[in-house]
């Protein structure tokens, strides 16, 4: 079958990352895929962020929702997941789903068809997008994994979270490179923000204090063609 072939090409054994015993692919486009569960996780879509700014007078281009959905469509087509978890802040604000252009809504619904879709509540969108299909949850436990928007203060093995929009920075040959990244220590994984207009916060910022075992922290930085796993000791703040 076509898509199983494409999936096989995407997943090489060496690229798999262990999280609390489960194996996952950190995709360079910023999604996490668990082949054994056929589960795709994506975080912080922030759909309709453009129009949210426009409401307050900053008329930034209204193409972010389209761009984000296009990218999401591509990864879903590649992995053909059975379950999709949108890890919160799926919409930039509570009325984002209402504002969404009809054509985008159609595209989103087409993507959702035929698979289980979970909207995890986020701080930007605590209420579920009522008129969209899919199930709204505060958090979601599957196997040894727990999916929730904000990482919990206490250490939780197998927690997959978003919210913080991690990025990492290295300095090499006097030049600084900053990229979005997955941040994980083998027990917990914080996902990069997926939305086209989402910014990012360095994993060495105070906001991440106590979330990771520093000696095993790895930033999986998103490259143009692949992921780069950079150990915590190489990273720079700012």
């Amino acid at each position: 079958m076509n898509f199983s072939l494409s999936r096989a090409m995407l997943i090489a054994e060496a690229d798999l990352v262990g999280i609390a015993g489960e194996r996952a692919v950190c995709d360079r486009r910023g999604v996490l895929y668990f082949p054994d569960l056929r589960l795709l996780a994506v975080s912080d879509l922030h759909l309709e962020k453009g129009s949210s700014f426009a409401r307050r007078g900053a008329l930034i281009p209204p193409y972010d929702t389209g761009a984000t959905l296009l990218q999401l469509q591509a990864v879903i087509a590649d992995y053909q997941p059975r379950i999709v978890v949108s890890l919160g802040d799926s919409f930039h604000d509570g009325s984002g789903a209402e504002r969404m252009h009809q054509s985008f809504r159609g595209r989103l619904e087409a993507m959702m068809a035929g698979r289980d879709w979970f909207w995890v509540a986020g701080n930007h969108d605590p209420e579920a997008p009522t008129d969209l299909p899919g199930e709204t949850v505060q958090e979601l436990a599957i196997g040894s994994l727990v999916f929730r928007h904000e990482p919990s203060k206490l250490r939780v093995e197998g927690e997959i979270a978003g919210h913080l929009h991690p990025c990492a920075r290295i300095v090499q040959r006097g030049r600084s490179v900053r990229r979005r990244c997955f941040a994980g220590d083998g027990g917990r994984m914080i996902m990069p923000a997926f939305g086209a207009y989402t910014g990012s916060l360095n994993v060495l910022d105070r906001a991440y204090a106590d979330l990771f075992r520093l000696e095993t922290l790895v930033a999986y930085m998103l490259g143009a063609e692949r992921i780069f796993a950079i150990s915590g000791s190489m990273l720079r703040p700012g």
Binding site: I60, P61, Y63, A67, L164, T198, G199, S200
Partner: peptide
């Protein structure tokens, strides 16, 4: 914090791919 604002680079990327003649 950086995650709240929209950076000009992101806007540029989105606008260039969707409306290059803007």
């Amino acid at each position: 914090g950086r995650q709240v604002t929209v950076s000009a680079d992101l806007i540029y990327d989105v606008l260039r791919s969707h409306e290059p003649d803007h």
